[in-house]
Every structure is written in C-alpha cells, then in structure tokens.
Nucleic acid binder design. Sequence first.
DNA 1: CTCTCCTCTCTGACCACATTTGAAA
DNA 2: ACTTTCAAATGTGGTCAGAGAGGAG
Length: 407
Amino acid sequence: MGYLCDYCGDQRSMVYCRSDAACLCLSCDRNVHSANILSKRHSRTLICERCHSQPALVRCAEERVSLCQNCDWMGHGASTSSSTHKRQTIRSYSGCPSAAELSSIWSSILDSPTGGESTCEQEMGLMSINENSSGNDPGPSENASGSVGVNSVTSMAKASVWPSSSSVPEINAASQVLDLPDESENATFPKLSFPGIKGPALSANDDLYADLDMDEVDLNFENYEELFGVALNNSEELFENGGIDSLFEATEMSGADSNCQSAVAAEGSVGQVNAMPACSNAASADSAMSTKTEPLLCFARQQSSLSFSGPNGETTAGDYQDCGASSMLLLGEPPWCPPSQDASLQSANRNDAVMRYKEKKKMRKFDKRVRYASRKARADVRKRVKGRFVKAGDVYDYDPLNQTRSC
DNA sequence: CTCTCCTCTCTGACCACATTTGAAA
DNA sequence: ACTTTCAAATGTGGTCAGAGAGGAG
C-alpha cells in the first residue's frame, strides 16, 4: 500500500489524509484539499516512511525517518538499541499551505544535517498548484479556515507566514516540540484560533467562544494536544473544546470493555499512554454522560497511567491516532476537576455544558473508518435492489454510477 | 396518573462478491 | 523453512423493518 499517490497514482505519496484515508503527493494534496472549505479542514500529516500506510507521528532525528506509532514502537522499543534515539513529534496541518508554508511547518524535523534535499523538499518543489491560487481562498478574515489549521499554528507563527498580525495566534512557538513540555508555557493561557472560525483569534476565555461548535472542527490527536496543553479553568471549557467527547468515550470503553482494562495490566506501562481503539459510541457516551457525570470528571486523574488496547487486546497505530482520549490522559492533573468551592456555580455551568453537549452529540456524525478502500470502491459502484447488493447482471433499482434503474 | 395512538429516531439485518486470512499440502 | 493452493471469513453501502422514546389526547 501506498508508495504512490492514491489520487494521481503517479507521484510518490508524501502526506496522509485521515479524513480521506488517502496517501497523496503534495501536489494532489493541495489540489484535493483546495476544493472547498470542508476539505480544507482535513488534517494531514507526513506518511510513515517505514510502512508507507500510516500517518507519521514522530521523526527520528538519528535515522532521519518519519514513523507512525506502530513503526516507532517496533523500531524504538525499550528492548531495541534504537530506544534512545531522539524523536520529535510531527504535527499535522490543514488548509492549503503553500510550499513555503509546508517548509516552515516541517523545517524543524526535516532539516537534513547533510544539507541534502529531502524527498519532501523535492516534492514541495513539484507542487503544481499556482501559489497565487490562494487568491481564491478566503481573505484574511477567513484565514483560520482557509489557511493552516491549529495543528501547525505554532510553526506558522514561528515562520511568520500569517497574513496579518491580527490573525496570528498568540502561541509560543517554543512549544512546537511536544516531547519537551514546558511547564511555564502551560501556565500561560495562549489564545487559540481554530479552523472554521471566522474572524480574529478567539480567546479560550472569551464568552463568544462558548458557542463554538467544535464538532465542526477537525479534532484529532494533535488538536486535543493543542487544546488541552493549556490550562482549562473549568469543565465548561472542556465541554466546549470538544474534549468531553473523547473523555466520555474513553470512560465508557473502560467500563464496558473489560479487554481494555485487562490490557492495562498486560501492558503495565506506567505513565505511558499507548493505544486507543475507536470505541466511539454516541449512545453509550450519552448514557455515561447522564449517569456518571460527576465521577467521570475525575476519571482521567485516577487513570492517568492507563494504557488502552483494542477490543481484541490488539493495538494499532491507527486506533491510537484516531482517538483523542489518550491525549486527555497525558495531561496528568486534569484542570477541569471542579474545585470544592463555588460548587453550585460550577454545577450549573456543567449542566449547561452537558445540555449543549447532548445537543451537539445528536447532531454529530461519527466517521466510519473504512479499512479497505478497495472494498469501499466496489461497494460504491455495486448495483442494488432496495439497498441490497444484487448479482451481476440481475435487475437492479439503484446504480450508484448512473443513478438509473434497469427495471 | 395511566393508557393508547402517533411520530420520529435509531439500530441492525440484508444482499454479492472481491479481498483478506489462515490452514493445509 | 518456504511456497503454493484453497476454503472460509471479512467488509463494503443503501435500504428497510422493527424497536424504542417521547409527545399529545
């Protein structure tokens, strides 16, 4: 799978789009994701240079390769001689960054000591889309949705590619390397801007921000890390940031799926959060919300050293990457645990947030992960009768290709 | 307060068949 | 140990039926 671009089938694939489950060359990436405002929100990252099938999460400085979680474990496990290799977290991006912007985003991880031009840099030189095509993009006021998303915010700020200072998020660029957390930075409260939010950067403390529908934002692992790497002062902000989805899903899973708990014992990796299965379940999350709200808020504190595994006890990088809950658990002391004082106010705020959360949950459509694109491709063109597949040559009432009927 | 009826939402089953998996040779 | 063969299992999407929730009378 995936040495070549899934779209053009010609160029070597460089980035992975989770929303499309596709490996794309940089040129096609920009083509595809400049199509509309929704596609611009897709979060992309580099492809693992080992398995060429998963999005890379880290860059090994020693080997100068980008690796997915799985390959990182395989290559840098505690039992391997490479376990001491210095790795940097690779950030994803959204929007339609230019070659220069991509270069800035990845500059810290793709710098080659040898001075040679990396494959990525070569690819960026081949990007076929006219850089001026961004003129069709939303103006500065829509920068948050049309340009580089929150995941690359720090890099972009560092590179000073934001079109105007008013839209530049006030985030310390030093936080770019995630595996070197800086307590002092977390102590401050940076202003965040999000894809899909028009206008200047909004403060997370801003009341206007309270009605932000985070369901429309491409929240992935990195997003959560961005969102919760800063100090959230109460549970309200947690709800509004969409993190509650992951928290509740994680909690539901821990309660309902005994395999998850057994995996904790099996892996026994204290302080290390490993993989999360895609245990999303709206109904279960709702039930969890309605019945276990209070204890749940402190769940992450109690389970901060949890490891999760899939329903079969297996762990995949894909699962890990698709679930934001693990990042919640990385935070250690959860700031959303309500303090004892002013409990009634906190409770009221929480109830409001719970109500809004439920409404959003209703509206939310969980992405179905397609494991085999080839099967999806076949199903997409297969003729049906009342939604059921029919034998080739049989009469059908629905043809996905022609929207016609044979009878 | 309870019951019935109606509407709406959600969930799972169904279908064919290429692909994937795992066992056997 | 490795390769080949083959059978069984898997997964894919649109539609429908049934279950359940909730409101009105």
